[in-house]
């Protein structure tokens, strides 16, 4: 009988030693992952919200400011708001053009437009996006005289501040991407309203051959 107990005890010991590997203590460490829940803060949010009166530095303006010592506030303001004296500007900010070429901007704008704008505005800017077809108020088409005559900054301002039913995208799309999108919207408008005499011969031939 004693022998049996001994055997059981040793089996238990061996078993427990083997089971050490089954408990994954390091799986969930005391550190906090991004967006994880935390019992430390009263509201349970591990990724802390910004305190009041904090303005996030835009990496672009930061870079230019540290590169050239002069006070770049004025051009920063155009870059960040798209407005001069409250009115939308009609050119791309110098700050942007010092960092990107036009093709880079349009390429980026195309990509970001497809990500953020297409659900409502549709890939051509007609305003027949899927979200609109499912019941969101239809946005206006870009291809109207009213929107063709708007300055470039207008599209940046609308993306930044929102307009009518459109929510602001200030927090969701970076400043430079909103400019790139504005530039791309111009390109979209042009794509549907180009003067046929401006086409290159190859494109003109392709147009004539198309059904």
């Amino acid at each position: 009988m004693r022998n049996l107990w001994r055997r059981l005890l040793s089996l238990l010991c061996i078993g427990m030693t083997l089971m050490v590997g089954c408990v994954q203590v390091m799986d969930d460490q005391p550190k906090l992952d991004p967006q994880e829940q935390s019992s430390f803060f009263a509201d349970g949010i591990a990724s802390r919200p910004l305190p009041d009166h904090i303005i996030a530095a835009d990496p672009a303006t930061w870079q230019v400011r540290s590169a050239s010592k002069h006070d770049a506030t004025t051009s920063d303001e155009v870059y960040l708001t798209g407005r001069v004296d409250g009115e939308p500007v009609d050119t791309l900010p110098a700050l942007l053009l010092s960092r990107f070429t036009y093709p880079e901007l349009l390429h980026r704008g195309h990509e970001r437009f497809d990500v953020s704008c297409v659900p409502c505005h549709d890939a051509t800017g007609s305003g027949n996006g899927m979200a609109a077809r499912r019941g969101f108020p239809y946005p206006p088409t870009y291809h109207s005289d009213r929107l063709r005559s708007q300055p470039l900054g207008y599209f940046f301002v609308v993306a930044t501040e929102g307009h009518n039913k459109m929510p602001p995208y200030r927090d969701l799309i970076s400043t430079e991407d909103r400019w790139a999108i504005a530039a791309y919207v111009r390109a979209l408008q042009f794509s549907q309203y180009a003067d046929v005499t401006q086409l290159k011969e190859a494109d003109l031939n392709a147009l004539q051959e198309s059904p």
Binding site: D114, P119, M130, A131
Partner: peptide
């Protein structure tokens, strides 16, 4: 699948 929203619209 149905609406065709890009992954990055939400997973920024």
């Amino acid at each position: 699948g149905d609406i065709g929203i890009d992954c990055r619209y939400c997973h920024q």
